[in-house]
Write a protein that binds this DNA or RNA. Structure first.
Lengths: 223, 223
DNA sequence: CGCGCCATCGACCGATCGGTTGAACGGGGT
DNA sequence: ACCCCGTTCAACCGATCGGTCGATGGCGCG
C-alpha cells in the first residue's frame, strides 16, 4: 500500500487506504448518481464504470478494483449473475457487491452462489451502502437487513441443494405426471419416485406437488 | 428404387425425390419398428436415428434430414419439446413431425409452439404416418384427426379465458394449498373448489394440479 | 322472458397421493 | 477401511384428489 493521504476519518480505521470501486449498471443515470454519491464519500474512490457484463469484466481486469458494485439486470446479454460468476473466477482479489432493486429469493441465492460478497437493495440508506462497500473490500459479508432475513430463513430450511435425480423428478412433475408415469419415464419404481418427492418437499419447504412446481418455477430450478 | 431425377411432375409421386427422415425416440424397439415400417415405403428414407434430444440435434446438423420424427418423452434430459424448439432454431430446412402416444392439450400446444410442423399419434394408421411425413417434408401442416379436433377445439375457445374466480383458485393452487384450504381461503365450499378445478383443467389442457400450476406459471396467468 | 354463463353446493367412487418405516447398494471422501 | 450420501426399492395406511352425476341462484343479453 503506498502512502495514502486520505482525509483523516474521525473513526479509528485510518488504516483503510481508499476503496477502489467499479460501477456496473446498464442505466447511465444510475451510474452517474452513484458516482456523485460516492465521490463525496471519504475512503471510496470510483475508478470506473461499466454498462454491460462484458465491459465490467474488461474494466475489472484492467483496473483491478477492490469492489464491483453490480446490478443484476443489465439489459441484453450477460446478466449480473453471470457477470458476477465470471468476475470472481477471473479477477481474483476483486469482490462483487450486488446492488439491485430486486430481492427475490431466487436472485439472492443465485447471486450468493455466483460468489457475490454482499447483496443490498438500492432502496437502502446511503450509509448502509458505504458500510457495505467497506465491508466488502475487506472480504466481509455485507447483507442489508431485509436480505439477511431472507438468507437466514433460507438457511433454516436447507433448500436449493437438489440432487440431479431430484431435478429429474421435478421436471417430470412440472409436466403434471403422476408418480407411476414419472417412474416409467425415468425407469425407476414408483416407490423411488415417492422417496425423492418427500426429499424434494423438504428441500423446497412445501408439502404438495403443486407447491413444489410453484417453487421450482419461481426459483428457475426447472426450465 | 429408381433414382429418377425428374423435377417438375404434374401431380404424381414421381415428383417426390426421397424424403430423408431422422428418427428420434428413446426406445430402441420403437425406432427399429419405425425403420422397418418406413423402409418398405417408397419415397421415404430413414437416414438416421437418435435416442436423446442431444443426439437428435447432432444427427440433424450432420445429416440435414427433411423430417425429424420426434417422440415427446425422451426419458431423462432434454424432452421432445425442447429438442423440437432447438431443432427448428438450429437446423433450418428440417421439419419436425411429432409422433407420440400422448395427446394432451398441453403437449400439443407446446409442441406446436415449439415449432413442430405436425403432430400425430403412434396409434395412427401407417398410411396416415406416410402421408404426414410427405406433407411435413413439403412444409404442410400434418395433424391426425383426433389432434386436429383438439386444436380446433382450442381455437374455438380462444385464450385460456379463465374467469376471475378460476384465477383465484389457481393462485391458491400455486401456493400448494389443498382443496379444503383453498375453500377456507376463499370462503367457499370444497365442492365448489373442485368444480372450478375441473374447469381449469379443461381450459389449460391438463388433468392434474401440478400440471395446472406449471401451465399457469408458464403462461403468466398468475404472478 | 327464456337462454347461457358463472358461481355455488352436495354426494359418491376409485385412484392417487402424502407420509412412514425399513432396507439395500455403490461411490466419494477422511 | 469406514461412513456419509445418493439412489434404489417394498409395504402399508389414511387423506386427498380426480371425475361424475346432479342441483340452485344470480347475472347480462337479445
Amino acid at each position: 500500500m503506498p502512502t495514502a493521504p486520505n482525509p483523516p476519518g474521525p473513526s479509528d480505521e485510518t488504516t483503510a487506504p481508499q476503496v477502489r470501486v467499479l460501477l456496473c449498471d446498464d442505466h447511465t443515470v444510475v451510474r452517474a448518481g452513484l458516482r456523485a454519491l460516492l465521490a463525496s464519500t471519504p475512503g471510496i474512490d470510483v475508478v470506473g464504470e461499466a454498462a454491460t457484463g462484458d465491459e465490467a469484466l474488461a474494466a475489472a481486469a484492467k483496473l483491478r478494483p477492490d469492489v464491483v458494485l453490480m446490478d443484476l439486470h443489465l439489459g441484453a446479454g450477460m446478466d449480473g449473475i453471470e457477470a458476477t460468476r465470471r468476475l470472481v473466477a477471473e479477477v481474483p482479489g476483486t469482490r462483487v457487491l450486488v446492488l439491485t432493486t430486486y430481492d427475490t429469493d431466487a436472485d439472492i441465492t443465485r447471486a450468493v452462489e455466483a460468489g457475490a460478497t454482499g447483496y443490498l437493495l438500492k432502496a437502502e440508506r446511503p450509509d448502509e451502502l458505504f458500510a457495505a462497500i467497506r465491508a466488502a473490500a475487506e472480504g466481509r459479508a455485507a447483507l442489508s437487513a431485509p436480505i439477511a432475513d431472507r438468507v437466514l430463513e433460507r438457511m433454516r430450511s436447507p433448500r436449493a441443494a437438489l440432487t440431479d435425480r431430484e431435478r429429474d423428478i421435478l421436471g417430470q412433475l412440472a409436466h403434471g405426471l403422476g408418480n407411476r408415469e414419472i417412474a416409467r419415464a425415468l425407469f425407476i419404481s414408483e416407490a423411488t419416485v415417492k422417496t425423492h418427492l418427500v426429499r424434494i418437499y423438504a428441500k423446497l419447504g412445501v408439502d404438495t406437488r403443486s407447491g413444489a412446481v410453484a417453487v421450482a418455477k419461481e426459483q428457475r430450478l426447472i426450465p
